[in-house]
Design a protein around this nucleic acid. Structure first.
Lengths: 228, 228
DNA sequence: TCATATTGAATGAATGTTCAACAAATGGTG
DNA sequence: CACCATTTGTTGAACATTCATTCAATATGA
């Protein structure tokens, strides 16, 4: 009963899902596609399912249906459901990483600009959209009780956090602020994650624009000499 | 009706998964207990299970075992698994609410003090401990795709947010700050939730103490004339 | 004795995984 | 090019397991 709906909904997906769900039925239907393409197709279908149904309700059948393929296919490309989900989380982290690094690179050498760009990056449409945020939230909800997810998360998060701390340290020196860089960096990254959380939950009063506004307000308050 | 409930559980409070699973076999075993006590016992067992196994892996059997009761018992006291989970979420919200209101009341009439106390309240041991944070995270992860959970969350959250906005507005006037109160209130509440998120995930570098430190740093940065 | 709470086994539905059969690509050989 | 063998991808049904729910039997308290 929900199956037909599933096919339709890949289209609605606010962003780029359209393409991944659409690419000529000729290419994916029945006929072979390269291993990588097929795996990506299944990962995208997994994200769709996570976003629409949540972690607990995401089933192999729903993923296969969402990709327009048969039931057994997922176990062929990924050995098990668990490995599919890990690959999906990995994929999302890789995408986030790439985006983050690009933002940092484009910011040049000025630490104030770098921090600003990193904050902006978090609210970019390509990263920060309903579908992906919902999928993140689904994973976070399970991460606590799944060592594998937690391991994946913590190593990367620690790295981002360190970059924030370093930037805050530099800004402190050049602006002679009184704060402990470590403390203010934690406040900053926590706020960014909290804003994501709000966006994920779909709270009425929080949009990408207002979230970004609040993030900017924080920077202005914490580093008035740089962002005033 | 919820008030009495609140009293009971604050007793076991701190972090004691142990006790909630242990309390005198004499009391609960076989012999009848009042309906309310039994329901509370099952709700506590549900929180334990959510914290230990996550939402997706929480089963009726695990809840019953955790409470030291038989399999069929949960369907007798709560009609279904879904209703058990809703009652559990409701219970956690009631507890949080009560704690929050108490903190606000104890703060007196000074808005700066009120805001400070509300922030402190969020990191109080009775609210902010591994077990309960993990349970919150488990619910949040599913809230996006469950209208019932979302409805429960959003109405309350909107209320808290409004209080924050009002307090920020007052502080702005008395300290003649430049910020838009709405924007700064969102930044504040997002940061608080983000800190919770970090604590939930069990990141090494974030403890209740460092989280509170960061929250205070935020207040000092945003309202220097009040918290400087 | 009656109402209510509790138990634990039975039931049925949902779902992850396996696998034999089939189809498509690939590559070698004449 | 034609032909066949092999490898690889795909399918869908069968299987086994897990789990929520039901319910008849039993125990408990009034």
């Amino acid at each position: 009963m929900l199956e037909t709906v599933t096919l339709m909904k890949t289209a609605d997906a606010t962003d780029n899902v359209a393409e991944s769900g659409r690419k000529g039925d000729a290419e994916k239907r029945g006929r072979k596609a390269s291993k990588e393409v097929r795996q990506l197709q299944l990962i995208e279908a997994t994200i769709d399912s996570l976003a629409k149904r949540g972690y607990a309700e995401t089933t192999m059948a729903d993923v296969a249906d969402g990709a327009g393929l048969s039931r057994g296919i997922v176990n062929f490309h990924f050995e098990s459901k668990e490995k599919l989900l890990i690959a999906t989380l990995q994929h999302m982290y890789d995408e986030y990483s790439a985006h983050w690094r690009t933002a940092l690179q484009k910011a040049g050498n000025d630490p104030a600009r770098q921090l600003q760009h990193l904050v902006w990056a978090d609210f970019d449409r390509s990263i920060c959209n309903k579908r992906k945020l919902a999928a993140w939230l689904a994973f976070w909800g399970e991460a606590k009780s799944r060592p594998t997810y937690q391991a994946l998360s913590s190593s990367r998060d620690a790295y981002y956090q360190q970059v924030f701390i370093d930037l805050c340290t530099t800004l402190k020196q050049s602006g002679s602020y009184a704060y402990d860089p470590q403390v203010i960096a934690l406040a900053l990254s926590a706020m960014l994650e909290g804003l994501w959380l709000r966006l994920m939950m779909g709270t009425e009063d929080t949009t990408r624009e207002t979230a970004l506004q609040s993030a900017n307000a924080f920077l202005a308050a914490a580093f008035p000499k740089h962002y005033g």
